[in-house]
Amino acid sequence: MTVAESSGAAAVAEFLRARREQLAQQWADLALFRAVYTSGRDIAVNAAHGLVDALTEVARDGRMDDVTVPALDQVRALLAQVIAARSQAGAGPLQVAGEVAELKRPVIAMVGRELADVNRGAALIAATDLMGTVRLVGMEISLSDEGAIVARQRQQLSEIATPVLKLWDRVVAVPLIGTLDSARTQVVMETLLEAIVDERATVAILDITGVPLVDTVVAQHLMKTALAVRLMGARCVVSGIRPQIAQTIVQLGIDLGDITTRATLADALEWALAQVGTSVGRA
C-alpha cells in the first residue's frame, strides 16, 4: 500500500464516520433499501447505518480493492440479507446488481463535494475502489443466491412425494405412505391445506392405509391437521385405520378427540359426499 493509498483510505474512513447519518439517509431512498424495508423509512435508514458502519471498518483496514479481507464479512452479511429479500421479491440478478451499483453515486458525490482539496484526489480513488468492491460482493452474492434458490426448489419438489388428489368436486385426499416424521407431517399438513384453498374443497380425507405405525406423535399430528382443516372451514376425515392400528390406538390410550374416522378410503369418500353441499365446519 502506498502512502497516498493509505491516506486516501483513512480519509474515507473518517468521512464515512462523520457523514454516517447523511449517507444512510440518502441510501435509504435508493431502490435497494426502499424495496426491502417497506414498513418505514426509519427501518431503511437503520439498515443503511449498518452498511455504512461495516464499510467504515473496511476503510479503516485500508485494503479497499481486496474482496478477501475479513473486514468485508460484515458487509457481505448485510448485503446478503437485502439481496435475498430482493430476489425473493422476484428481482433478477442483473436488476439487483444495478441497485447495488447505485449505492456508489451518493458516496462519490459527497466525497467530491465535501473533502478538502489536499485529500480529495486520494479519497476519491479510495472511495471508488471501495464502492467497486461493494459492487463485486453484491454480484457474487446475487449469483450464488440464485444457486440457492434453484437448490431450494429442487428440495421442495422432492418433498412433494405426497400428492394431494382431487377425488370429487370439493373433496381432496392425501394418501400417506411410509413413516411419518415431524418434518414430513408438517409438509403434508401444509400441502393439504393449500390444496383446500386451490381446489375450493370443503372436505379433506387423510388416508393412512400406507402408514405402518401410529404412535402418539403421529396421532398428535393427525389431530393438529384435522384442527387446522376445521379452522379453515373445511372438514377432515381420517381413513384407512387398519384393525391393528385401531388396537394400538386404544392400547396407547390415544384420544383422537372428535376426529371423524372411517375404515377405508371408499367409506371416507361416501362420508365426504354426504358432507359436500352442507359444507360447514365447526371451530
Partner: peptide
C-alpha cells in the same frame, strides 16, 4: 411488519 420483513430477508 418489521419482524415479517426480517423473516422474509432470512
Amino acid at each position: 411488519q418489521a419482524v415479517r420483513e426480517a423473516a422474509v430477508a432470512a
